[in-house]
């Protein structure tokens, strides 16, 4: 938040459009989305189901192309983003034939590091990621939270400046989710990476972010930008403060206008 006026944004999306062929007809998914994430910022994107949030992340990551609009990284619209932006999806996507440790070093391995060197580097972080003692296990033997942390470590080990998180905690139970949010906060505060998070969880968005973008229902565009100026470091106690509650009610009201479904804290994701 601090350096935003002067420096070039880390990631800047300008009027992103995207349409898909759905059942024979062309359906607009994104209709002019503008989003900025400065270096070291934590930005969340929140919106009703099917508003194209995952498509948006795919475009930022370079997995998919926008029909129109510009994506700039460090002010460069033609930068090679695929491979230089970390992307963690809701599914942990751990390879069942690799041990936990070997899963986490996948990125390093792809960049030409020997398995031995890569493992050494991962072992330094295994404790931070709460995986100590489970390095040699196959992913199947792990709990959901642990698998998610292993996927996190795999994403973080490459040391990419920008990390995209697509509902990383969506599949976890409420208690584990809270623990993981606090853990992510700590991690982010020490690593100073730019994070763009997609979430359905209003509490999660406010607790973690410097700025929250609310998208409209399909076709998605930015309905509101909300700066979260709560003091940091934050932890789960921040949720009960008056400022937090006010921000929450603003977000919920805005979301309510966009979605006819009455369940708020966590909306169902249908496009998975």
């Amino acid at each position: 938040m601090s350096q935003r006026a002067v420096t070039t944004p880390k990631i800047e999306l300008s009027s992103i459009y995207k349409a898909f062929n759905l059942g024979g007809r062309r359906e607009a998914v994104l209709a002019g989305v503008d989003i900025i994430a400065n270096a070291g910022e934590f930005v969340s994107i929140i919106g009703p189901s099917g508003c194209g949030k995952s498509t948006l992340l795919n475009i930022i990551a370079g997995l998919d192309d926008a029909d129109a609009g510009i994506v700039q990284m460090d002010g460069d619209p033609s930068s090679m983003r695929l491979g230089s932006i970390g992307y963690m999806q809701q599914k942990d996507l751990l390879m069942p034939w690799r041990s936990v440790l070997d899963n986490t070093v996948l990125g390093l391995e792809l960049h030409g590091l020997s398995k031995k060197q890569a493992r050494l580097r991962a072992l330094d972080l295994v404790e931070t990621f709460g995986l100590k003692g489970f390095e040699k296990q196959y992913p199947l033997a792990l709990s959901g939270g642990m698998r998610q942390r292993a996927a996190f470590l795999r994403t973080m080990l490459l040391d990419q400046d920008v990390i995209l998180l697509d509902e990383p905690f969506g599949a976890l139970d409420a208690l584990t989710r809270v623990q993981m949010q606090e853990w992510l906060l700590e991690l982010w505060e020490s690593m100073k990476k730019t994070i763009i998070l997609i979430t359905h969880d209003v509490d999660e968005a406010i607790l973690l972010s410097d700025r929250v973008y609310v998208l409209t229902a399909r076709p998605g565009r930015v309905k509101m930008v909300l700066n979260i100026e709560l003091p940091r470091p934050r932890d789960y106690k921040s949720v009960t403060t008056r400022e937090f509650t006010e921000l929450k009610s603003i977000l919920l009201t805005t979301l309510h206008e966009e979605n006819s479904m009455p369940a708020w804290g966590k909306l169902e994701e249908t496009n998975k």
Binding site: M95, L106, L110, L158
Partner: peptide, 17 residues
């Protein structure tokens, strides 16, 4: 799993990898 292939591409994997 196409998601897994995409995950590898974001880690910089080549077609061969």
């Amino acid at each position: 799993d196409p998601d897994m292939a995409n995950m590898m591409r974001t880690l910089g994997a080549s077609r061969w990898q």
